[in-house]
Design a protein around this nucleic acid. Structure first.
Lengths: 214, 214
DNA sequence: GGTCTACTAGACTCATGAGTCTGTTTTAGC
DNA sequence: GCTAAAACAGACTCATGAGTCTAGTAGACC
């Protein structure tokens, strides 16, 4: 590993630790992951971890914050594609839907959700940390896009926030069960089918032409 | 507590332990829950716990099995109501939907899901134990009912399993986020609204009269 | 009354891992 | 080259909790 010392390297150590901690937490869960393991994985002394993050809980929070932001970015990037819809709305929705499903199935994102869920009993505020960062922003952004499409007459959406929830639910609702909470990788074709049927239902409910999608 | 000795009482001890373990696991999470606490809560000596369940993991599996079956029963009972639909289909769907949402929001059910999620890293097969018991049976039962309603001409369902997934997703998809994974109790009115809008979307997609629900 | 099984209280072993401390080494900035 | 901040390896303390063991008690059945 590259040796970096002094003040300059501090920030690099920090992100190396965050990276390693995310991996170890994801693989082992919070309780089972030892700080020694994380330090070793980051190529760093244990004391360095403590000097950066105070304690294990602080490290967890830092990891969750970083990963939640990262997840939010990729989700928002997917939704961005609804800003200028050129062809059919349903093509656009399928495209965006597939991207959102991919974000949802991303191993890191799934590990993140598992982490928070598992430690909720010990640290109840983690849910706010996570949900305040990712789903809320994503939800709002999607609602904005759907409303805009409705104004353009390409969808009929009276309550954008609810419609956004429905879109997301139809796409991701069955994935946790099918993938056994992420412990099984779902084949591409299956994800495509989920998106396909989910978008079809969404369009029957919110499409501008009542008979959309046959 | 009632003192029961001899062979007769053994089964009662067993269920007392399961009951207490479910509570303690739900409240503390698996890692944080100590067997001493569980034994104390059950009014039983620690050795008795070990004589019944071997080790802590065995206890966890037993608890999950019992609770998953219990959850499946209440879900199936709700779906049963679609066997003979007298009035409007949408009234029936709202009724069943609300019951399913209540099952989903039941604190024990939520704790169960949290438990499995949190320990998935350590015991990956727990997901199969849980999902093989509850959602799969519920999913199939719901699909059966939807198909029957379709045969009666009261719905238009080509793929019952997918339709059942959509129904479930529309009802429960937003609840984890809104309730912060169960750490906030959602008011009744909010749950009603979720059911109302979810059923409306479902009927627009699968209703026999295309313009159903306005 | 004797025996067997299940239970009890509580002491005990032992592994694990969080967090601290020590003394040394590296590197940036001057 | 000197200084000070930061990181290093690794030993150390300490709390916790799983699982075991012992010695004694209570009811069931004959």
């Amino acid at each position: 590993m590259v040796e970096v010392g002094g003040t300059r390297g501090r920030i690099e150590k920090r992100s190396a630790i965050l990276e390693a901690a995310a991996d170890v937490f994801a693989a082992e869960g919070f309780a089972l992951a030892s700080v020694d393991d994380i330090a070793a994985a980051a190529g760093v002394a244990k004391a360095t971890v403590y000097s950066h993050f105070g304690d294990k809980e602080g490290l967890l929070r830092a990891v969750l914050t970083v990963e939640a932001d990262r997840a939010a970015e990729s989700n928002l990037a997917a939704i961005e594609r609804l800003l200028h819809v050129e062809g059919d709305v349903d093509d656009a929705l399928r495209d965006v839907g597939r991207r959102l499903v991919d974000c949802f199935c991303d191993p890191k994102a799934q590990a993140l959700r598992r982490l928070v869920t598992g430690e909720l009993a010990r640290y109840p505020d983690l849910a706010d940390l996570l949900f305040g960062r990712t789903p809320q922003r994503v939800h709002q952004a999607l609602a904005d896009r759907l409303l805009a499409l409705s104004v353009q007459g390409r969808l009929v959406v009276d309550d954008p926030l609810t419609a956004a929830e429905h879109f997301g639910s139809l796409l991701t609702g069955s994935i946790d069960a099918r993938s056994r909470l992420g412990s099984r990788r779902l084949p591409d074709a299956e994800l495509d089918a989920i998106v396909e049927s989910g978008v079809r239902v969404f369009l029957r409910a919110y499409g501008a032409t009542p008979a959309a999608g046959r």
